[in-house]
Design a protein around this nucleic acid. Structure first.
Length: 121
DNA sequence: GTGATGACATTGA
DNA sequence: ATCAATGCCATCA
């Protein structure tokens, strides 16, 4: 399925210093209900190399555990290194999506759809 | 084919 | 605000 090719492109487009959510990525891929597949793909390294997986969090901004990183605090370290504020809450390590979340413009979203169409994926 | 699993999301109490 | 219940759908056994 071309969903993973799309997901790869979207993930690579997440700007430095910003955090995106699984649902957001799924949405930009044109598959709003595939948030779980995004997580699955990242977990299994299904999107290939060079994916900034540390910038992906769930809808509440929580760093979802992440067994796909070298160590447990790896994801947090990478985010902090990019200037993303990560704080410890009762629910776990969390980023403020209001502040560090990747806000998509409509043009951006349409741009992805166009890329997918052009590449036939 | 069938059923279980999961880096998720949304809804309703 | 918090929590359980549901919905989801590509994999994998």
């Amino acid at each position: 399925m071309d969903f993973y090719k799309r997901a790869r492109i979207v993930c690579l487009a997440i700007p430095y210093g910003k955090a995106a959510t699984y649902g957001q990525i799924a949405l930009l891929c044109g598959k709003p209900k595939n948030a779980r597949q995004v997580g699955y793909a990242l977990n299994r390294g299904r999107l290939g190399e060079g994916i900034p997986a540390h910038r992906v969090v769930n809808a509440r901004g929580i760093l979802s555990g992440a067994a796909a990183f070298e160590t447990e605090d790896m994801q947090r370290s990478l985010m902090e290194a990019e200037g993303i504020q990560v704080e410890w809450t009762a629910a776990g390590w969390q980023v403020d999506l209001k502040r560090s979340g990747w806000k998509n413009t409509m043009e951006e979203a349409l741009g992805f759809l166009e890329i997918f169409e052009v590449q036939g994926i």
